[in-house]
Simulated assay, not measured.
Amino acid sequence: MPEDFLIAKNPEEGSTLPYLLRLPLGAEGVVLKARETWPRTGKVYCHRAVGWPADPEIVETVPVRSCVRRGAAIDLVLDRGRENRSQFVLTRIKGGREAVFWQTARTAKQARPAGAIPTARAQGIADLEIVVDSHERYAWSFKDQQVVTRRAALAAGDYAVMVDGGVVASVERKSLQDLVSTLTSGKMRYLAAHLSELPRAAIVVEERYSKVFSLEFVRPAVVADAIGEHHARFPDVPIVFCETRPLAQEWTYRFLAAALTEAGGEAAGSERTAAIASGAAPAAAEIRAWAQDNGYRLGDRGRIPAEIRAAFDRRHD
């Protein structure tokens, strides 16, 4: 018969993992330190404990239906109606250190959000060329998007689109760890200052914003304050959290394509202004653009009413 699953308070003073878990596996059981008593809203980080205390302060005792190790995972099924199935995943993180993540089917799904990346081209863009900074290691491939990439040195950002040799938009890519390091070291101000000199720019993070509040070696409030300060200081260079690497690529693709389209529209607007100044007869597109910019209700197609044409002719009176 399987033994009980035990949860006790961690007797270590000052530990960031306040609970001990005892899994009924093997002669001595598997003892772990844990941040929570159950993975309800996300994966729970665990760490190996030296052993089970002689006089533990028990928090919860739950009968076990099964506890089986399968490769790098331990499947635990508790004998209760709710919150009964979970899994402990044993893995290695930086430096080869062992880490254990306690998850349920629900929290695992949250970590891998459903939904396929769209394959439709960005609106108005046939073939988008993205310039990848020559110093960018492990660059994105944009394999799910219709993109051609080329390497070149960028003064700011990691991915950019250009018109006539000039950058019109750029994106700086960050992992959460890199973002935290850049914010807390003071480097972000210099990086953002360079990006703000461009017509359009953004910083994309391959993680969820909620992960900021589960950081271990930096106070989450310090990082959250730094993010808020960045947005107040550089409102034209947003920090966008995109949850996963593929979603970060997709967002960057759509942003750069839209920026390139917008840059083309601005150039067309300059050409319209020059044509009007030269005395050339206004085209319908020029009148339509002026009317829409000045609050007239006019669609992108169809006949232009006579009163709008008359107002256009009187605009300089």
Rank of each mutant, 00 (worst) to 15 (best):
E136A: 00
E136G: 09
R137I: 13
A139M: 10
W140L: 14
Q145K: 02
Q145T: 03
Q146Y: 06
Q146S: 12
V148W: 05
R150H: 09
R150N: 04
R150K: 07
R150A: 08
R151D: 06
L154W: 01
A155G: 15
A155H: 12
A156L: 05
G157R: 03
D158E: 08
D158V: 07
A160V: 14
M162T: 14
M162C: 14
V163G: 06
V163R: 15
D164K: 15
G166R: 15
V167T: 15
V168F: 03
V168N: 10
A169P: 13
S170M: 10
E172D: 10
E172H: 00
E172F: 02
K174A: 07
S175H: 11
S175N: 07
L176S: 06
L176C: 07
Q177R: 13
Q177E: 14
Q177Y: 07
D178G: 11
L179M: 07
L179D: 03
V180Y: 01
V180R: 10
S181C: 04
T182V: 09
T182M: 12
T184I: 11
S185A: 07
G186I: 05
K187R: 15
K187H: 14
M188H: 10
R189A: 13
R189D: 13
H194A: 13
L195T: 01
L195V: 06
E197N: 09
E197Y: 03
